[in-house]
Design a protein around this nucleic acid. Structure first.
Lengths: 135, 135
DNA sequence: ATAGCTGCAAATGGTTTGCTTCGTT
DNA sequence: AACGAAGCAAACCATTTGCAGCTAT
């Protein structure tokens, strides 16, 4: 396919910046709220369209996350996540060992595995602390 | 909490049976459609409420799956999934090796990991075949 | 001029919920 | 009578889409 015109508009830049400067993985709604502070008339549709576009172009990565909203990640390489079941925090982890698991999965199913994503769930250090204080 | 009354009504039995006899992982919508063949007046709300109830009681397991509908699984033990990116098939796998990965994740994040779930994605044998035929 | 982007609003799809009625105990 | 369950419809929430108008090229 031919290279189609692509404009890096102020709105798009702002959306990209929010994802890249975020202290954590934001939902589209959160990104919408933050961008709206600078562009009060921005629409939800624009945010979603832009996020998908940026993901397609490999500038960000999106993670449809469990039963809740999709999160957007500035990291574009393969990696896994850890989720705190108490406060909901979601952080990145690198678990290279899991690559070996692909072979097991291929042998078990006959699939040709191209990718994998692990979500670990547990309790974050902060919530562990809070738990100890309650005892 | 006190044991509260719980009735295993015909509708509930039918929903449980559909999950347990399913040839694959069904969505709530699919379960609704199937149960409706026997109970034409059953409501979506009943299906969802029942599925959550059965999951809470450990009779089935639910997997909020990516950006699409939650799937319901007769297996109630910890296991992983393989997803075909071509036809959408979703099958179970057991990858015990991944348990080791938890330690890596704990060390990296300080989290207390209690669980994990891996979704492998790739191409199922059938779609591999189809692909070969096209060449 | 026109291809591409925005804003708006309506539509979609999965899921949840309030409420009334009904069946069991 | 009292409790739990079912059915129905409306509500919800995240996300998508059609479209008219605007803006850079």
């Amino acid at each position: 396919m031919l290279e189609t015109g692509f404009r890096l508009t102020p709105q798009r830049l702002a959306i990209l910046a929010e994802v890249q400067n975020a202290e954590r993985h934001l939902t589209a709604g959160e990104i919408f709220e933050r961008v709206r502070r600078k562009y009060p008339t921005i629409a939800y549709g624009t945010v979603y369209r832009t996020l998908h576009l940026l993901a397609e172009r490999g500038l960000i990565q999106e993670f449809p996350f469990g039963d809740h909203a999709t999160r957007f990640d500035r990291r574009t390489d393969r990696h896994d996540h850890v989720h705190c079941v108490v406060c909901g925090e979601l952080v990145d982890v690198d678990v290279p060992i899991a690559i070996l698991a692909r072979q097991v999965a291929e042998e078990q199913t006959g699939y040709e595995i191209h990718d994998h994503q692990t979500v670990f769930s547990g309790i974050c250090p902060t919530c562990q602390e809070a738990g100890h204080r309650l005892r």
